[in-house]
Design a protein around this nucleic acid. Sequence first.
RNA 1: GGCGCCAUCGUCCAGUGGUUUAGGACAGGGCCCUCUCAAGGCUCAGACACGGGUUCAAAUCCCGUUGGCGCUACCA
Length: 480
Amino acid sequence: MTRVRFAPSPTGFLHIGGARTYLFNWLYARKLGGQVVLRIDDTDTQRSTDASLQSILEGMKWLEMPWDEQHYQSKRQQLHADAADALLKKGAAYRDFTPATTDKEKASSESKKGAWLCNPGMRELSTEESDRRAAAGEPFALRFRGPREDNGGVAFKDMVYRKQFRKYADIEDFALLRSDGNPTYHLASCVDDGDLKITDILRGQDHLTNSFKHIQIFEALGYDVPKFGHLPLLLGPDQSKLSKRRHGAIVSVVNYRDAGFLPQAFVNYMSLLGWSSKDNQEVFTVDELLERFEPASILRTNSIVQFDENDEAKWAPPKAVWLNGQHLRSMPVEKLMKYVKPELEKAGWWKDEYDGDPAILRTIDSIRSRYTMLGDFQLRAAAFFNDDFPTEEKAVANLDKDNARELLRGLADPIEALTEFTHETIEAALRGYAEENGVKAGLLINGSRAALTGQSVGPSAFEVFELIGQQKTVRRLRAV
RNA sequence: GGCGCCAUCGUCCAGUGGUUUAGGACAGGGCCCUCUCAAGGCUCAGACACGGGUUCAAAUCCCGUUGGCGCUACCA
């Protein structure tokens, strides 16, 4: 049974990079009929916050790609401690009593001199001395004892990056336990992956070099080594790895939700970053994605998410916006209502009887043809749900053109006289009336759109008449 | 510094030795459609980082250079 996991750490919100990793994991597992595990990697108690956790859960929920199990790493600490113990007893790990270097500058300048492998003297400490110093309460970090006499290395086949190899001489004695006794990411992650029977690990390419260490841990602990697949990184427009710190809230998944993206459009956009269908198709429903997704065609090149931090109105990646329009217009309208309803509620226009009302569905179906974001439903649809709606400048201009107002008031009569109120009868009535008065139909068409919706743009005017209804249409024409 | 990954239009992708005057999508320009605006259709502009090989033939294979990215923490 294929089991994958997504293991975010709650040290910030869920960003596009993480969401894309989750998407690929999800597609991969679902395609194989496997299971998806969500594990919150909260071992870094210093930096983990509840707000981050909520943001992650919220973002994940919005994506509509459900997971099967949820775990918290902080609740599995006994497991990690036992594993550390076992490794120490086996001799696969040793205590390092060197005080921690908190000075980042120093650490990085030291590593600039060459490859750092271990702190001098520590790996050779006798068991007796090590035990004695530990018993005396001296703080220590537990380090993995990498093979040093062996000039071989660790090899694995990456699903994306193919054959990978790293010499033991290039793998340092990484820490398993911090001096405060907490497990590091490496230890906790591997122990949990092993214990949770994770079979396939798809994660960011920034972990590629970690995988060599992890394989060593899996093997030392006697777990089956999972299959690895590393995904190319998502970069910001500045070409640096997408991160909460550098790029801020703009890369947060909930930011896209709040901007009026449809989850399936957002998912579609993410799927196109580092993967593509062989036939160049770009617009996919989630089902189609599930059908077409092929781990073998995951790219190895990093891709840039084209957002614009300097443009408050148009910050979102243009292609994501375009995709949203595509999904907004092509999704079954009944399904779309799930997302439109909250918009109408926020605007204060929603009524309970709207639920399943075919007239409402028709209205939404019509007006969505001009919308791209969900927010458009509350920003631009007032006239369809309320008698009180603003009239924009360009619409006023249409009404003020020639003697449009007067003519529109007169148009109310033939409209009112219609016994059948359809696109065809309305059009005939309007065009006939225009001819009678010796004006171009366009004057009345644009004028009535302005009168009925307060807007100069939108669906076909005759369709608007129908949607608004005969009574209201007459009323609005007379009030112009 | 060391180790590794990557390198096709502004961006996202196609392309796995000849079918390529390098294809599609987004964004941009133009035209058409048209009652407006979208959508849609057509169209223009726009790229194989560089240098060496290998080969009858290279965007495609090899080497080097350059560039970008990542890792190099008792962060994940």
